[in-house]
Design a binder for these strands. Structure first.
Lengths: 146, 146
DNA sequence: CAACAATCTGCAACGATTGTTGAGTAGCTC
DNA sequence: GAGCTACTCAACAATCGTTGCAGATTGTTG
């Protein structure tokens, strides 16, 4: 994702204001480009700015998503996750704990032939690999041998 | 998905009872193998059995999902959708209206190489094509020329 | 610096789903 | 067909993630 400075410019260019809250959110996303939930971003920013509201975090994340500066993922893990990585890529999702990791591999043949699109205009193609992460697998193992 | 008669057997085999409510739900899914939400199934069954409760529909759909007789899809469309089609297949999702269609095409090369799995045990691979369905595209067009 | 509009916050509300309770109904087995 | 027990219903509450709202606050522009 863009640097906080670049995002600041983009916000101004759109007539959006650059508040301290937003700057902290930019920084939090830039420092920690995982797939945070809104709650996670809130927790991170709250540490430095205890008065910020969760509402503001949602607001800013939505603004960023609307501008295409991050992607909102809906992976059925309960809450939305925001992905600052804009390069086309795919995800590994742990069904146990909801963890999301990026897949570092090209996946070929993802183009849906015209005659299979049923009239849809396709904007994005996502591949989700669901399974169990190493930590959860270990936890399962230890509880079953117990 | 299995026929109502087969589901009846499977329920009995599991020690679950086969009530008229459940039978109607089986039939509704069998007749109309779209990707209904719980609410949609409820609406469909309510037409014939006005006293059925949404609670019962959720219960039965969850039972079916637990038995593997249908798949619960989480596509970020607000509510869960239940997919009676058990063959490995993929989905077209309309970002505007939330409609979900099956993709009738094999997609090759979906195997994630061992060295890209980051320790995950992969159970399932889903491909989601997101875009705009013909109806929503038409609606957009007519409202913009207006 | 003043003024205006955008933003922030705290709280209430929302939609989807599940828990609970208790009373009534009715599968299923013998 | 009787009895056990699962199931259903209804009504309501609660949960969780997210968004709407009102009033106070504050970037930003001239």
């Amino acid at each position: 994702m863009k640097s906080p400075a670049e995002l600041t410019e983009r916000f101004r260019a759109q007539g959006l204001r650059v508040t301290p809250q937003r700057q902290r959110i930019f920084a939090a996303l830039y420092d920690n480009p995982e797939h945070p939930t809104a709650e996670a971003v809130y927790a991170s920013v709250s540490a430095e700015m205890p008065t910020i509201s969760l509402r503001t975090v949602y607001q800013t994340l939505n603004d960023l998503a609307a501008m295409g500066e991050l992607v909102q993922l809906e992976l059925g893990t309960g809450s939305a996750r925001f992905d600052p990585n804009l390069d086309g890529h795919h995800h590994l999702v742990c069904d146990q704990c909801g963890k999301v990791l990026d897949v570092d591999a090209e996946i070929a043949g993802l183009d849906l032939p015209e005659d299979r699109r049923q009239g849809f205009v396709i904007d994005a193609t996502e591949v989700v690999f669901r399974g169990t992460c190493p930590q959860c697998a270990a936890r399962e193992l230890s509880s079953s041998t117990h």
